[in-house]
């Protein structure tokens, strides 16, 4: 039985909301150069101004337009999220599918490793590693990807095992197809929804972690990102500026994360027949 997952997400009200938010955020990120009223990098002497027609969200401590930075920040956050999600999912796929297909001792070892990784809080590892490496954007993305794969690997393995026993896969095996061929032709296409769910989880985590690390001040100071904006805004909470500097960034961040959560949630509902029944009951 194949389910049309897009249809499911669109029919699910939560999923629909999630998609709308995500499309909006992605849209503003893409159109940032058009939408932004100002250049987000130019420093001007008009610092810490209240919202006005010229600066709808006021200006920050070095006179940069906050709205413009918010829009450009969406680019960094989403780009980080996207790259981390793809890299982490690729790792998950490599580990999970190979374990499922090869089996034996390899599978046992791999799953042991996955289980072990799962009980270590990833944020702590990132902090301690970042303290030594002092990562730029690229290092940060790599670091986050390296720590994000185990959860997905486990689910992908389970799915691979299930798919392996399906009729068409077994048929192709009897016809002498190698594991790589099976992976490419049968497993990956059928893993679609699992991979999507995994991508979304990865993206969600990346947005979160980037913000957290920026808050601790261990990321590259040159980038414009939401985490960095929060980090700078926090130094001026004694003024009223937090209302139009701190709050909008936090809300944008939360909305983005929430859109990921909602989409992921509706995907899970679509994949779990029992949850589906409840929804339609």
């Amino acid at each position: 039985m194949h389910i049309n997952y897009w249809q499911e997400i669109r029919n699910n009200s939560l999923g629909r909301i999630g998609m709308i938010i995500l499309v909006l955020v992605a849209g503003t990120a893409l159109l940032a150069p058009v939408l932004a009223p100002d250049d987000p990098f130019t420093q001007t002497p008009d610092s810490l101004e209240s919202p006005s027609a010229q600066h709808p969200l006021g200006t920050n401590d070095v006179g940069q337009d906050i709205l413009s930075r918010l829009l450009y920040g969406a680019r960094t956050s989403l780009a980080t999220a996207l790259v981390v999600a793809i890299l982490a999912t690729m790792l998950s796929l490599a580990a999970g599918a190979s374990a499922g297909l090869i089996g034996g001792l390899y599978e046992k070892m791999m799953m042991r490793l996955v289980d072990a990784f799962l009980v270590i809080p990833p944020m702590l590892v990132v902090i301690i590693a970042a303290a030594y490496i002092q990562p730029g954007m690229i290092h940060l993305v790599l670091l986050l990807s390296l720590l994000g794969w185990p959860a997905g690997a486990r689910i992908i393995r389970a799915q691979t095992l299930a798919l392996k026993e399906k009729l068409h896969v077994r048929a192709s095996r009897t016809f002498g197809a190698g594991p790589l061929y099976i992976l490419k032709r049968h497993i990956i296409p059928d893993l679609g929804p699992v991979l999507t769910a995994n991508l979304i989880r990865g993206a969600r985590r990346a947005v979160f972690m980037e913000a957290g690390l920026s808050f601790l001040g261990i990321t590259d100071p040159m980038t414009v990102s939401w985490g960095k904006m929060l980090y700078h805004a926090l130094k001026y909470v004694y003024l009223d500026v937090w209302q139009w500097w701190l709050l909008p960034v936090g809300i944008a961040l939360s909305l983005t994360v929430m859109s990921f959560t909602l989409i992921g949630y509706s995907l899970e509902e679509a994949m779990d027949p029992r949850l589906r029944r409840e929804k339609h009951a």
Partner: peptide, 10 residues
């Protein structure tokens, strides 16, 4: 002077 006005808000 500009540096003071800009980076240190005067």
């Amino acid at each position: 002077e500009g540096l003071v006005n800009n980076a240190k808000r005067g």
